[in-house]
Design a protein around this nucleic acid. Sequence first.
RNA 1: GUCCCGUUCGUCUAGCCAGGCCUAGGACACUGGGUUUUCAUCCCAGCAACAGGGGUUCGAAUCCCCUACGGGACGCCA
Length: 463
Amino acid sequence: MSQVRVRFAPSPTGFFHIGSARTALFNWLYARHCNGTFVLRIEDTDHERNTPEALRVLLEGMRWLGLDWDEGPEIGGPKGPYFQSERSEIYRAAVEKLLANGRAYEKDGAVFFRIEGERYREYDEYLKAEVEKVRAEPMVFEDAIRGRIERVVDRDFPIVRANGEPVFHLVNVVDDIEMEISHVIRGEDHLANTARHLELFHALGATPPIFAHLPLILKDPAVGKGKMSKRDQGALIEEYQTRHFLAESVRNFLCLLGWNPKDDREVMPIGEIIESFDFPGIQKGAARFDEAKMRFMNGHYLRELPVETYAWFARPILTEAGVIEEDADEDYLQKVLLLCRPKLDLLENLADYSRFFFTRDYPLDEKARAKVGKKADPSELAGELAAAIDAETEAGVAGFEAALEKAANEHGRKAGAYRPLTRFAVTGGLSGPDMGEIIELLGLEEISLRLKKLASAPVEESK
RNA sequence: GUCCCGUUCGUCUAGCCAGGCCUAGGACACUGGGUUUUCAUCCCAGCAACAGGGGUUCGAAUCCCCUACGGGACGCCA
């Protein structure tokens, strides 16, 4: 059996689009599944938008997602160079060959590929001009995902521009031949191009690879129509990097966007995905990106992280948000993180969720204050409870419960009246980590202090 | 305009190729309940789909045809 060689051939634009990432991912998965080779080839023939920064974004995104390539930039390989900008000689040779065997001709300084068949002229509604067309034999191929596809190429097309630069169709096919690519896995937007590519493969005397066209990722209908483009909210991998999504969850989610293992597994380790991944599991219809599900997965992976790793991710986030200092105590940090984790799905929310553990200067949610103040004056309640706590000798939750009981009896209230209030005083809101654990970690003294602070604060009328 | 591809719950999808096991399964979201002082975790329950029409067949989500809708391509962009 011949070696499986697949490639991801992006054009560095300065963005790493979610659709490109998914294409890269599926190529990578297939290569790993088949024990094949994953080639990264940079289609940088468009010199204007091609900058080192654009390449960096791309490679960084690939690495972040864990998509390691076997041949390509920075590591080289036997079929290099892997930048199209460095392969001009190879393209020139291919053009010479086509020119020599009569499948190409020069016109207006450019080189055109000749489609064989009877020629006629026709007004083209789309091009708004009369053009020369060809009655050609249809190109037929078996798409690994969609089955039999048939399409005619009815017009000659340029393969070298008047400025001497080779055109995408040409370089793409030449490189796939030279790099001995066995399977071309790419987006459905290339489906219509495939007939042209097939013409080129044949004219160059090469056996075409197997094609597999992936369904497109569509934008949220609320945003607009059509395939997701780089301008759409949530369309770039960088966005999820900056929002501190775990790469694992983004990758897992992307795997499921257009592929599934045919059983009920969804959150699954990458090794299992690699093992199960194959063309029959790939969807034909386009999919819509659903951030809610990715968030859910992120929460799942977050909860599975070893606490040291979790802290390693969290520390810079909290430092940047001004919640902790660079030298914050690791032990205390880990305790806080563990307390926050059960209900946290996104690291980007961690700062607001945990601020009160590190400072007394946390915002008080006015809605929460209004809610707490519905039955009784918060300041009054806080004062009563603080006094009871100060009189208490036992520490921790036990002491808190005793104080609660005492305050309730003394002032003729239900113990429950103090509970939401305590959370509000201690955290600034009405939701968050388990209150008992907060009390244990912060200590009764601190709880009392925060209650007193609330008791002495001026009461604001809620609007 | 021409050509190509697609269409199962709001979303991602299983089932379709090898028609009966489908009163269509799972997951996210949503709703309700439980746990909880609170809560974004956890547990339970619920909601909700075969685009429409015609055929073939004893029987169709599954096969065939048409229509509608969605998407893509048609560039000296990639």
